[in-house]
Amino acid sequence: MKTRRQRGEEIRREVMSDPFVDRALNNSNDFDAPLQELVMETAWGTVWDRDDLPRATRSLVTIAMLAAMKCSNELKGHVRGALRNGCSVEEIRGVLLHAVPYIGAPASLEAFRSAREVIEEFEKAQQADAE
């Protein structure tokens, strides 16, 4: 049986990609490695492992929360994860538009800029793969 930490890494890799997780783990040091372990075990190995919401829904909820907190870097990662989880660009845009009256224009503008950057990269990669 897998530990929560092992299950967390597995889920994090499925959602965020191997390069993303490798970069996060390889860039950690003695100071922040405990944080990486905590996030892997609790966020990914406990919360994301629950079966009460589909992963796509979790991705959209996470995007809304990160937009509200103005966490652009984390938002970009989770927009990529949402696309990997099967969320459409329209769903991501819909969540960000729905957030506007609740989180305000400055946070929404920042979230849209971050999401747009990732979506454009994703679409460019898809187009290159199709050629």
Rank of each mutant, 00 (worst) to 15 (best):
Leu53Gly: 07
Glu121Phe: 01
Ile11Cys: 02
Cys71Ala: 15
Ile11Leu: 15
Met69Ile: 04
Pro54Arg: 11
Ile63Thr: 08
Gln126Arg: 12
Asp18Asn: 06
Arg13Gln: 12
Arg116Ser: 14
Asp129Ala: 15
Asp129Glu: 14
Ala130Ser: 15
Ala67Glu: 07
His98Val: 12
Ala33Tyr: 08
Asp49Val: 00
Val21Ile: 14
Tyr102Gln: 07
Lys76Glu: 15
Leu75Lys: 00
His98Tyr: 09
Thr57Met: 13
Val79Phe: 02
Ala99Lys: 00
Met40Ser: 15
Trp44Asp: 04
Glu131Val: 10
Arg12Thr: 00
Gly45Tyr: 02
Glu110Tyr: 05
Ala64Ser: 14
Arg50Val: 08
Gly77Met: 03
Pro19Thr: 05
Asp52Lys: 03
Leu66Ile: 01
Ser114Met: 06
Thr62Met: 05
Asn27Ile: 04
Ala56Asp: 12
Asp51His: 07
Tyr102Gly: 10
Pro101Asp: 14
Glu37Leu: 09
Glu90Ile: 04
Gly81Cys: 05
Thr46Lys: 05
Arg58Phe: 08
Arg13Ile: 11
Val61Ser: 13
Leu60His: 09
Leu53Val: 07
Arg116Lys: 14
Asp18Trp: 10
Ile92Asn: 08
Met16Ala: 13
Ser114Ile: 02
Phe112Ala: 09
Leu66Cys: 03
Glu123Leu: 12
Trp48Leu: 00
Asp18Pro: 01
Ala24Gly: 09
Leu35Arg: 01
Glu9Pro: 03
His78Asp: 08
Glu131Trp: 03
Val21Trp: 02
Arg93Ser: 13
Asp52Cys: 06
Gln127Val: 02
Ala64Met: 04
Leu25Glu: 15
Ala67His: 06
Arg12Gly: 11
Trp44Pro: 05
Gln127His: 07
Ser88Gln: 08
Ala128Cys: 06
Asp18Phe: 05
Gly81Tyr: 01
Asn85Thr: 00
Gly77Ser: 08
Lys70Val: 09
Met40Trp: 01
Pro19Asn: 10
Arg55Asp: 11
Leu75Gly: 05
Cys71Lys: 10
Asp129Lys: 10
Gly81Glu: 09
Tyr102Glu: 12
Asp22Ser: 14
Val95Ile: 14
Glu123Ala: 06
Ala56Thr: 10
Asp22Gln: 11
Leu97Gln: 10
Arg84Pro: 06
Gln126Ala: 15
Leu83Met: 10
Pro106Ile: 06
Glu41Ser: 09
Glu90Phe: 01
Leu97Gly: 10
Gly8Tyr: 05
Ile103Glu: 11
Thr42Ser: 13
